[in-house]
Design a binder for these strands. Structure first.
Lengths: 225, 225, 225, 225
DNA sequence: AATGAATGAGCCTTCATTCAT
DNA sequence: CATGAATGAAGGCTCATTCAT
């Protein structure tokens, strides 16, 4: 997974630099605690110049979130697409976990700005961000619904809690996981093992209908913008 | 679990009201986004009066965190203490999860201020908060170490990741769990089931040494201040 | 000269303590830079208690100035009164310098609050202080007028400048003279020598009329309050 | 002596105006008593604009002091440089008095902010100001040391007291001397006459060594910044 | 005689934003 | 493209003062 804004053959321009530096600051100190002058300083420009590229500080934030969600969404989709046809719901969910964690820790400033964002964002911000996030949420909801419908989920689980529980756990990892102390792969393995408790020990023999709608989920990823 | 600052026979005074309203705001909008004037307004006093009770906004924050950690720590300790003697490491960890989630959602403004606090706090703040948190972290570390030493944890788990993974997951629940949409008990059950993947399917027959040191962990809870 | 507020047989009460601590702070950090809480702290009481003894911070300041001027005035008068009858104008002025410097450095917190006070005091303050100071100024003016009338002052001096020049010089000494680095007596000697340039080398033989009005000047010291 | 910040060909910009208005206020009411809003008002800008030019109120103060000391130092140096070669120590000191008083009363807001500044400045301020002042103090010390070494000073004077005594006297004049009531030249003459008491009546015939080191003193004026 | 609690006014400072150039 | 200059709004905080007890 190549880093955001660093696709080969693409020189980082002023706009990209601003985004990156803002993401670093936002993810480190928080939105309110990061000043535009500070962002501009790190980007090597004056704060008034920022307004040539972005209409406001909030718009920068929104774009970072959008990029983060897009990046993660793409990574998750790629992991699922790489599965053999007819993969089980469990394999599909685990691929999604893999894709999410890989993107999360492969693009930290952006993705951890998103992962750490407050529940209650300023109204102006959240109105732009919500649909972006909702799309990703819907994808996961579908993924888990398929597993549920196919009888893969253990009894006693409140299905509606599963998605926020899992995504919350994954997102929290940006707060403590340090790549210098363990590989992302180890993190993925540990996480998947930890979540292995959600699966039925005796899954149903056939899961054809599940596989079908799963295919639909993969396709349904919308391009934001 | 009685709510913080609302013990029977104790009238909420101005100081308590400030703390509570600040906790509501901090947990909802974040520290930097919550103004002192706003806190004072909600508490029904003038902003200058706040300084009669607290030396600074940061001190308010620190006290909220302290209360939150104390409350959770006490709840966790109580759950573990209620277990029969010789309870298995698994039962002990699950009791801790229960205690943590109960306290978390029974005192939301305080505990979710803590649960959502940024990784990178201003230095002045974190120097007071860190020891409080470290005490609780150490407790969990010991709890899980006992399980590991007694052979209860599944192979393939990175043991050092387990504590932040679990605590992160629990803390994140304040961001999405709404008591109006499901009971705390259901949340606890779902969480414990979800984490059931960390346990060995064939645990060791006897775990006496584990039970011993576990008893020590319970006792070691220090009273902060 | 015994220190202000410490006359034998007189216990320092709360009011005196407040005055003294305020004088220390005012003379060290300035009026505006010294807080009432700080004064109260050093006096061992609460800031609200200060208002039992003084109507306002400015009133404290006024009283300090009054005490300072009174103390200096008394010291100067005593030095002059100790002169033999018929002392020359020069001896009388030098006695005044002696008395001023002795009182100045014998009661530093009070006198140096006065000596360093700004030219432009808040109107409310200065309306009380001005008459006190004016009395002392008038005394000096008379002293120098007598010397001038009797022909003791050197030609080429602007007589109206002499009083502020001398008093300004004396008062400034509180800013740099440190008793640990030289005796007050040495300061007095050096100052008088330095100012010896104001005297005629050949003073008039008789100065009887001067001695007369000088006696009047001594008597004319009014008791403030 | 042209006024500070008003050199020909140099339009007063916002920064200069702020400095000047701040100097007027500081010298009239004192540092703490002068509000930034007040300074901004008089400068015809908003208080927030002040921070475009100066990092803090203290920095404004520091710059004023620096300008004041520089201006006085330059004036004193010029007066001494204008003396014929081999001028006596007495003539040199009197030239310094002349230069000091001329600059003092020719640039009043700036120089009298400096001349009236409290003994005890806030630490942050004084750490910048002290070296500036020390340079000027050292110059005077050398000037007087030369006179002392050459035998020009009257017996009975405490030499270490002479510099603060003279400079204190000169600086105090800003507190009372009003150009509308007498010329600066009259002030200078009176002051020099007053201080004539410090000189030996029978100075040594030759003072060559004194003249030599005096030349060094003139040259040694450092440019601050 | 003393004080705990409260406050209104004001402080210095920051900051996102604008706009003419 | 970029910026220097300016600003309105708000921020946390201090402080002299009041007053019921």
């Amino acid at each position: 997974m190549s880093a955001v804004l660093e696709e080969p053959g693409r020189l980082p321009n002023a706009r990209d630099i601003i985004l990156r530096e803002a993401a670093v600051l936002f993810s480190t100190k928080g939105f309110a605690e990061s000043g535009l002058r500070e962002i501009a300083d790190k980007a090597g420009i004056r704060s008034s110049t920022v307004y040539y590229y972005f209409a406001s500080k909030e718009r920068i934030y929104e774009e970072i979130i959008r990029i983060a969600v897009d990046t993660i969404f793409a990574s998750v989709s790629a992991e699922i697409a790489a599965l053999p046809d007819g993969a089980t719901p469990r394999l599909r969910v685990e691929a999604a976990i893999r894709g999410h964690l890989r993107a999360l820790h492969g693009n930290k400033p952006f993705t951890s700005t998103n992962a750490q964002s407050r529940i209650k964002l300023p109204e102006a911000v959240s109105s732009v961000i919500r649909p972006v996030r909702d799309g990703y949420s819907a994808f996961w909801r579908k993924l888990l619904d398929e597993a549920l419908a196919a009888g893969w989920l253990k009894q006693g689980l409140e299905p509606r809690m599963l998605r926020p529980l899992i995504l919350g756990t994954l997102n929290r990892t940006v707060g403590w996981f340090d790549e210098r102390e363990g590989s992302v792969q180890a993190l993925i393995d540990t996480t998947i093992t930890t979540f292995s408790g959600i699966w039925n020990e005796a899954p149903p023999a056939r899961a054809k209908s599940g596989a079908k709608s799963a295919a639909k989920a993969t396709v349904s990823r919308p391009r934001s913008r």
